[in-house]
């Protein structure tokens, strides 16, 4: 034991100094979701399968949908990604989602008039 601890003295610490030094998440990490409104057909299978009811698909116009995701409720299981037959949902590696203001946790994924994807806080 004593040899091991003395050896550790000259080794780089194993600890990661977190906020200064961020760890890269591996590929395929189940982090924050993204929604592609142009692919969505509004079948609402994701809503049906979501274990916590974190996702809501709203119809805003004919063949135009937006997704409201409550990041506080979401458990990042990515079941909705599996359930979606049109692959309109995807996971990202984004994990730093903590917020002091719980209103900011509700995110609306939609599209603007030029069909560009938008992401904004729910009203």
């Amino acid at each position: 034991m004593i040899r091991q601890v003395l050896y550790s003295l000259f080794k780089k610490p194993a600890t990661n100094l977190y906020p200064a030094q961020k760890l890269e998440m591996p590929k395929g990490y189940r982090g924050k979701l993204v929604f592609y409104p142009e692919k969505c057909i509004g079948c609402k299978m994701c809503m049906k399968d979501c274990p916590t009811g974190a996702i809501t698909i709203n119809k805003i116009a004919e063949k135009k949908f937006e997704a409201v995701i409550d990041l506080g409720k979401c458990i990042y299981c990515a079941q909705c990604v599996d359930s979606c037959i049109k692959k309109a949902l995807e996971v990202t590696k984004d994990v730093t989602l903590a917020q002091l203001d719980d209103k900011k946790l509700k995110v609306v994924f939609g599209s603007d008039s030029e069909n560009n994807r938008t992401e904004k806080q729910a009203p």
Binding site: S8, L9, T15
Partner: peptide, 11 residues
């Protein structure tokens, strides 16, 4: 600090 470094921590 020494205790931490011996344990391979930052301290």
């Amino acid at each position: 600090k020494l205790y931490a470094r011996l344990q391979n921590r930052v301290g």
